[in-house]
């Protein structure tokens, strides 16, 4: 009895030591070049939801931070899923999360589990959500499901059709 208990504890300790090793999560987001009459860089939100669709980490929120009187915040609601899920209950800007918008290109965002802005997520199923909304343009939302802890390196992709190009999620345990 005592033996089992000790064994159980050491397995737990082993598990903890594994999970305390920094799991890295990187997100590559492609913003496509668009041939439109009036182009504005898109607003972008990258976040993680748990299996009950609750936001557990906001990873990036790009919006127009340079306008006078924080007018750029007026358009945050256009990322309507993100706005509903967490944006509307947050105060902008968020340190380490919010930033300026970017033009067409591929952007690599790197995060470490347990280091802000990525929370120390317990074992479970999650969804990475990437939402883009463009002034005088459209809106697109991509979802990539994943599970933690990752036993091996994982790469998962989603392909946008309008406002987003390819989004790649890579997890290194």
């Amino acid at each position: 009895m005592k033996l089992t208990h000790t064994l159980g504890l050491s397995v737990l300790a082993l598990f903890l030591s594994f999970s305390s090793q920094a799991t890295e999560l990187s997100v590559s987001v492609e913003i496509p070049a668009l041939d439109v009459a009036e182009y504005h860089r898109p607003y972008l939100a990258v976040w993680v939801e748990d299996s009950s669709n609750k936001t557990v980490s906001n990873l990036a929120v790009w919006y127009d931070t340079k306008l006078r009187n924080n007018e750029g915040e007026d358009w945050l609601k256009d990322m309507r899923q993100w706005w509903r899920k967490s944006g509307r209950s947050l105060t902008m800007p968020i340190d380490g999360v919010t930033g300026a918008t970017h033009g067409p290109g591929k952007y690599d965002l790197n995060f470490t589990l347990g280091q802000a802005p990525l929370a120390k997520l317990p074992e479970g199923d999650y969804t990475l959500r990437v939402e883009a909304a463009r002034e005088v343009g459209g809106r697109e939302l991509l979802n990539i499901p994943f599970s933690l802890p990752a036993k091996e390196s994982i790469t998962a992709k989603a392909q946008g059709s309008n406002e987003l190009g390819e989004v790649v999620l890579s997890i290194k345990p």
Binding site: N69, N70, E71, E73, D74, W75, L76, K77, R80, W83, G87, R88
Partner: peptide, 8 residues
Amino acid sequence: TVLSGSTP
């Protein structure tokens, strides 16, 4: 009906 920003 749904607005963001400081004093919309």
